[in-house]
Nucleic acid binder design. Structure first.
Length: 119
DNA sequence: GCTGTGACTCCTT
DNA sequence: AAAGGAGCCACAG
């Protein structure tokens, strides 16, 4: 896998985030098949040609944006998100706006386990 | 090749 | 609630 194809995968995931929802860097990395490489996602976004890319829907796992608070890009990101209906509380995006990776990965796992052995 | 530096995340104090 | 540390990995010097 070349860096270029990894970038392409990352950008594909980002462009697939629905309006009104957000995704963490780590989540984007996982969906792109690059678990544990959130920093690489951040770097790709920084260097990417963001034209037409919904980069503003990517934030840190704690709901805060990755950019310097108060910077121009930070303002842009917040403004775009609010336009899409994403609301903030204390500078953090509320958890319910995060796109779900695998709908009920936990439920699937625990469900199958409990089906085998309910203890 | 080693070191420092992050648009990161998780766990432990 | 806040801070420190460890894991993570590409890139620049």
């Amino acid at each position: 896998m070349s860096r270029e194809s990894e970038k392409a995968d990352i950008l594909a995931i980002v462009s697939g985030i629905p309006s009104g929802q957000v995704m963490s860097y780590g989540e984007v990395a996982r969906r792109a098949g690059l678990p544990g490489r959130a920093r690489w996602v951040g770097r790709v976004l920084r260097e990417a040609d963001v034209g037409g890319l919904p980069w503003h829907r990517v934030l840190r796992a704690d709901g805060r944006t990755g950019l310097a608070t108060g910077s121009a890009a930070w303002e842009t990101q917040h403004a775009r998100l609010e336009i899409e209906g994403v609301r903030f509380s204390n500078g953090r995006v509320l958890p319910e706006y995060f796109a779900r990776a695998v709908p009920d990965l936990d439920a699937a796992v625990w469900g199958s386990l409990s089906a085998i052995d309910k203890s």
